[in-house]
Nucleic acid binder design. Structure first.
Length: 586
DNA sequence: CAAGGAGCAG
């Protein structure tokens, strides 16, 4: 038991306590005062503490940096430790930064340094830095070290230079399992399963890593999940990771039954196994099952992490299940699941799609860090809830804060403008999109522009947008022009749209229904009958419209023409009321 | 006086 400290502990005592990684978080908390004074009095204490922090899982890079800054004259070991932490936590730039700092201070590192640095290069910095490091490795005589050499292979392979990796691999006098595995992973990453399989067959011995690389490759890279399964069944010794990988192979191609079967027969599971399945159900249109599974996971005593939490939130979003979403939000807060940008963004999206603008805004306002996705979700959410002005406000806030934007930001703003009829504002932003923000409009943006103009009756301009856009117009573009023609009664452009849709092979029943409605509206009955006949001979049928909503935890489904819902009368009364009030506000 | 390279969820 760690006693709560009234007196200050000596650095030596603290260090002996820090030997057990599991208790470190508590020690950091309880003995914060002692640690501060130890940092002050014992010059080597910070270095030891830094190492202790690096052993934590999850590590806190921010805390590690604070500790690092307390080290008076960091040696190679301390630099290695801070570089390792950052490389491991996915901060490659930071890792390289400390590598550079080390060099600046006249320390050149040892053969322990390079594998960390190479990992950082491999993950995102590109192999140009890798090539530089390679030169450095040779210069310092570390090129005989297998750890370093394997690090180089993986760095090259992860940057698409698998040829360079292979050259290194072939030149090895000695290889170990990791050399083989790194090379095979390189081929799999590149999508060359044949070469990967060849190497795999040539291997003198294999471990679960080797098998998993191939299973994962067949399952996700090439979608040959049956081949992956054959390998899986042949494996002599299976570990947790390869089970998860196999399950993920099934979920990523939508074979949820097989995934579930495998999941049920697992000897042990971790939070990743649950997350894979939860997310799989959420991604493949079975959010109810995803939520059930999430509950099962809690029941079974597995603590959810950020990933599984996001999966469950997404499932709520898809079902429009506000109550369950709110409960989840509350639960995550209570259990102190880390709230990062991704989780919070998922919550905003959920609240928006459930129509709860206030709760969404609460989360948004409480965030100290926001990603592009966060802003986008906010803008899209406000727009689709009919608050175009508010969406524009968020966009302008983004501008003021110089937050990075992407194409989805603009798509969101344009759509928001369309829904609220803010034509001039939308046009202005479309103009500035390329000139000021340097973002090239895609087909979707032109589509939004056509919608924006079309819905307010500026059909000629909408048609000109389609005519002048730099890429080939898609069927969706003609479709929205057609829809606009229906609202604003323009037979000529409607016929043109249908003609173009037919050329693109996108003339489904809905298209002809629209056209015949337009004819009917203009009293052109001959044309109406012509279209109806055309539809009948073409074997087309109107698709049935349906929607679903959650109330008090129950999901209600509505199908066009179906009157089996117990509250049908009341529902229609409300609808009548709503349409009356819409008419009166116009 | 401690440490490194390869595989699974977003």
């Amino acid at each position: 038991m760690i006693s709560s400290s009234s007196s200050t502990l000596l650095p030596k005592t603290l260090l002996s306590l820090l030997k057990k990684p599991k208790t470190i978080p508590r020690i950091l908390q309880i003995h914060a005062v002692s640690i501060t004074s130890a940092l002050f009095f014992d010059p080597s204490f910070a270095a030891r503490l830094l190492f202790a922090v690096s052993e934590l899982s999850p590590t806190s890079p921010a805390y590690a940096e604070t500790v690092f800054s307390q080290i008076p004259r960091p040696d190679t070991f301390s630099y290695n430790t801070i570089i390792r932490i950052h490389a491991h936590c996915g901060n490659p730039l930071k890792a390289i930064h400390f590598f550079a700092l080390m060099r600046k201070n006249g320390i050149f590192g040892d053969n322990y340094t390079y594998p960390f640095v190479l990992k950082a290069c491999g993950s995102m910095l590109g192999c140009k830095v890798g090539v530089l490091i390679h030169g450095e490795v040779i210069k310092r005589g570390f090129d005989e070290d297998l750890f370093v050499r394997n690090g180089l292979i993986s760095c090259y392979c992860k940057n698409g230079e698998y040829g360079l990796g292979r050259k290194l691999f072939d030149g090895f006098v000695a290889r170990d399992l990791v050399s083989w595995n790194s090379m095979i992973a390189g081929y799999v990453d590149y999508g060359d399963m044949e070469e990967a399989q060849n190497l795999f067959d040539e291997m003198p011995e294999r471990d679960p890593y080797s098998w998993t690389i191939l299973i994962d490759g067949y399952g996700k890279k090439v979608g040959d999940v049956d081949r992956a399964r054959k390998l899986f069944d042949k494996m002599p010794k299976r570990d947790l990771v390869c089970w998860n990988s196999m399950i993920d192979g099934y979920t990523s191609c939508g074979k949820m039954d097989q995934a579930r079967e495998l999941f049920e027969s697992m000897p042990e599971r971790n939070v990743i196994s649950w997350s894979i399945l939860i997310d799989g159900y959420a991604q493949h249109g079975n959010p109810k099952e995803a939520l059930d599974l999430f509950q099962q996971m809690l029941h079974q005593g597995t603590k959810p992490d950020k990933v599984s939490a996001v999966g469950a939130i997404t499932a709520c979003t898809q079902m429009g299940a506000l109550d369950q979403g709110r409960w989840l939000h509350f639960y995550l807060k209570k259990k102190k699941i880390l709230f990062d940008v991704v989780v919070q963004t998922a919550l905003i999206d959920m609240y928006m799609k459930c129509g709860s603008l206030d709760l969404a805004s609460d989360v948004f306002d409480s965030m100290c860090e926001r990603s592009v996705v966060t802003w986008n979700v906010m803008i899209v959410g406000l727009g689709s809830n009919g608050c175009g002005r508010l969406a524009l406000e968020i966009f302008h806030k983004m501008e003021r804060e110089r937050a990075p934007m992407d194409d989805l930001t603009f798509l969101g703003v344009l759509t928001a403008c369309t829904h609220t009829g803010l034509v001039s504002e939308g046009l202005e932003i479309f103009e500035r999109m390329k000139s000021e923000f340097g973002i090239e409009p895609k087909v979707e943006h032109y589509g939004a522009l056509v919608d924006l103009l079309g819905r307010t009756g500026r059909l000629r301009e909408a048609r000109n947008v389609i005519g002048k856009m730099p890429m080939k117009p898609t069927s969706a573009l003609w479709g929205s022009l057609l829809a606009a023609c229906r609202t604003h009664k323009c037979v000529e452009l409607a016929e043109l749209s249908v003609e173009q849709l037919a050329k693109l092979g996108a003339d489904d029943s809905g298209v002809y229904v629209l056209l015949s409605n337009i004819y009917a509206g203009e009293g052109m009955w001959d044309d109406v009958w012509r279209i109806r006949k055309l539809m009948k001979t073409g074997g087309m049928r109107k698709e049935i419209g349906r929607s679903a909503v959650e109330v008090d935890g129950t999901v209600h489904e509505f199908i066009y023409g179906d009157s089996s819902h117990p509250f049908m009368q009341e529902i229609y009364a409300v609808l009548q009321d709503l349409s009356n009030s819409v008419v009166s506000t116009r």
